[in-house]
Amino acid sequence: MSADIIYIHLETVSNLILSYGISLQDFAGALKRLPSHLLLLTAVDPNDNVDSHTGFNVIGGTDDILDYFDDRKITVHKWIDFEQSLYLEQLTPIEVSQLLYLGHAYTHLESPFYYKLQNNYVYLTLPDQTVKTYYRYLEQFYRVLNRSLKRHLQEQLPEARFLFRRRSTIPNIDPIILKQLQPLFIDGALFSFEEIGFLQKEIHIPIYGLTGRFRAVNDAWTNNVQEKVAELIYDQSLQKWRLSVFNEAAFSSQGLF
C-alpha cells in the first residue's frame, strides 16, 4: 500500500492500538525511556542470544535495542519488553505458552501485561503490515502519535519540507487535542496526508471515520464507507495546532474493536 496515511483503531479494555503508518522509529523516538530488555516472539535464531528458560531470543541494553529498532532489514517485529532477566526464570510453562500464542495468533489469551515481566509494551507486526501495540499506559501512545503526525507532515509535501526544515521547528500537538480524538479511534480513524490542504498559512490534515474494517492492501480503505469528520490544523503564523470537528456525532461513538 502506497497511500500516505495514519490509521488508528483503539480497543480500550486492553489498551490495544491497531495502526498503519506509525513506524517503529516513531514509537521508539517518542518514548521517554527505552525498554530495558526485549523478548522476541519471532522465530528463534540460534545464532543470537537465546534465553535458556523460555527458549526465546532476547535483546538487552540500550545500544543493542536501538540497533534492533533501526535495522531496516528486519520487516517483522514481534516482541514484549521485560525489566530483569531474573524474571524470565519465574515464568511458568503456561505463561510461556501464552507468549507463544501471542506471537503466533497476534492476540492475547489473558492480560498482555505480566506481573513477572513488568512489561509496558507488546509490539506485533501483522502479516498485512498493520501493527498491534499494547500500552500499559495509554498516554504513551499519544506521544507516539504526535511524533508520527509531525513526521508525515514533513515528508509528504515539498512545501512542508521547505517550511519545516527541522522537526524541532514544528511544535508538539497539545495532548488534549489528540485525546479528543479517542472516541473516534474506537471505531477507527484515518489521517490522510495525501489530501493535505493549504489555506493561507494553515495546513489542514483531513481525518476520516471508517465504518468498515481497514485493509492495508491495494488502497482498499477507500472502498469503505467513510466520512471526513474532522481536520487537524496547523497554523504556521501562530505555531499552534487545533482540531476542527465536522461531525460531533462521530466523536460520541461507543463502538468496540
Rank of each mutant, 00 (worst) to 15 (best):
M1H: 15
S2R: 11
D4Y: 13
I5H: 07
Y7Q: 09
L10Y: 01
L10A: 00
V13S: 09
V13P: 03
L16M: 13
I22P: 07
F27V: 03
L31S: 07
L31H: 07
L34Q: 09
L38C: 05
V44W: 14
V44K: 13
N47I: 06
D48M: 05
D48Q: 04
D48L: 09
N49Y: 09
H53P: 14
N57Q: 03
V58M: 11
V58Y: 13
D67R: 06
Y68H: 12
Y68K: 10
Y68W: 10
D70F: 14
K73F: 06
K73V: 08
K78C: 01
W79D: 06
I80F: 12
L86H: 15
L86C: 15
S97R: 15
L100M: 13
G103E: 12
G103N: 11
H104N: 11
A105N: 06
H108K: 08
H108C: 07
L109Q: 09
K116I: 03
V122K: 05
Y123G: 05
P127T: 02
D128L: 05
T130N: 06
T130E: 05
T133F: 06
Y134Q: 05
Y135V: 03
Y135G: 08
L138V: 12
Y142M: 01
V144W: 02
S148R: 07
R151Q: 11
E155A: 12
L157G: 14
P158L: 09
P158H: 09
L163A: 13
S168G: 10
T169P: 08
T169L: 15
P171Y: 14
I173M: 02
D174C: 02
I176D: 08
I186R: 00
E194W: 03
E195D: 14
E195A: 15
I196P: 03
L199I: 12
I205N: 11
I205M: 11
I207T: 00
Y208K: 01
T211K: 03
F214M: 07
A216Q: 10
A216S: 13
D219C: 11
V225L: 15
E227A: 00
E227G: 03
L232N: 01
Q236V: 15
S237I: 10
K240G: 10
K240I: 10
F246H: 00
E248M: 12
A249R: 14
A249M: 09
F251A: 01
Q254G: 04
G255L: 07
L256R: 10
